[in-house]
Design a binder for these strands. Structure first.
Lengths: 204, 204
DNA sequence: CAAATGACCCATTTAGAATTTTGGTCAGAG
DNA sequence: CTCTGACCAAAATTCTAAATGGGTCATTTG
């Protein structure tokens, strides 16, 4: 394992556990078993290291989503496969969402601008995906930017803030939320029954 | 106009303009044209006054929604009428949402607990409404608590944080988001076209 | 005498100086 | 060349004194 990888892993662990402000460069160095100077041979600043981690997780998510896509298959079947692949990371995402919120609150203006840019990139990706569906004529015409925003916020705030009356939010419940609510809507159509809900259990 | 009403109005104006912390009781008294002591004849504390205002707006919203309901009419037609009635207050709600966020961030533990309770009441109302739809067999079976949470968060965070590339978020766009995305879902069904989108423009 | 006032009290907040911590550098070691 | 760790300046934290503002109540007003 290279020095760089050790630093990346130590940074991820420290940020997750102590938050952005609560993590010091000395701490990361100690955790990685290197000196502080060594970090600066690989990353220009604490903020850059933090954003590197964020970008890494985002890339991991995108890759997981995209490698679940099957060329030529139905748009929504692909979407559902992609969602199921995403669910595996939901604990990571909840942690990230808390971290991002912390930086939003206490970070410098530049740090916030960086997050803004990352979020914009995610929203752009989502909006393009939706637009493709609309072009194909399988997604209801809508304002892609607005819907992308809602989907992203719904996902992050459910992971961050939703606390059921009892128990935990299961992978299945989250999956059904997206396929049930966002894909098919609240309106129950004649003859639909609970068919769509069984999909998740059947295939897992 | 009674002294109490003058205080209520002054409080609403002051809180909206300067935020919770930025508003002093002296300021409210001056705005209402009464002395500070007079406020305490009607409200036991600044926090109580603030929550009274919140509850007032929430009641106003619920009344607007409920008086748009037509007994015996279709569930979703009623919902759409209710939504359209809600839209009229969206500027107020954006302001409130910012205020609530401020108190969440800087307020005391009791203040936060109060907000938590208010939010719980709103979520409960939404969840019951959804449950009724499910009992009637017109709403897709789903976790009412989770869906209520998502609907509420989507509404507040779009009003608070969504900034389109250009221009403002129109009443129509917001209405179409809820009827299009949440009621009918992203999936375009054969023969649907843009029919549902025209509804808003036809009837306004 | 009920409604209203505003001077007053004290807990909380703020401002500013003193001190510590920490992000970032760099001369030198290996 | 990679890496170290003492070092520096800036940012954060702590400490303290001053002021601000929520809440009270003896007194006044209509």
């Amino acid at each position: 394992m290279t020095v760089r990888e050790r630093i990346e892993e130590a940074a991820k662990r420290a940020f997750s556990e102590f938050g952005y402000k609560g993590t010091t460069m000395d701490q990361i160095a100690r955790l990685a078993g290197v000196s502080k100077g060594a970090i600066y041979l690989h990353f220009p600043s604490k903020e850059a290291l933090f954003h590197h981690m964020l970008r890494g997780v985002i890339a991991q998510v995108r890759d997981a989503f995209e490698s679940a896509q099957v060329e030529g298959d139905d748009y929504f079947r692909n979407l559902e496969r992609g969602l199921r692949a995403l669910m595996k990371f939901r604990a990571d995402h909840a942690m990230l969402s808390k971290l991002v919120q912390e930086v939003r609150q206490f970070g410098t203006a530049e740090a916030r601008a960086g997050l803004q840019q990352l979020e914009a990139a995610i929203l752009d990706y989502l909006a393009r995906h939706l637009q493709r569906g609309m072009d194909l004529g399988v997604v209801r015409p809508c304002r892609a930017d607005l819907v992308a925003f809602v989907l992203f916020r719904a996902y992050t705030s459910v992971l961050r803030d939703f606390r059921p009356e009892e128990g935990e939010l299961s992978e299945g419940a989250l999956y059904e939320l997206f396929t049930g609510l966002f894909v098919d809507g609240l309106r129950l159509r004649p003859g639909e029954g609970r068919a769509s809900n069984r999909t998740f259990l059947e295939e897992r």
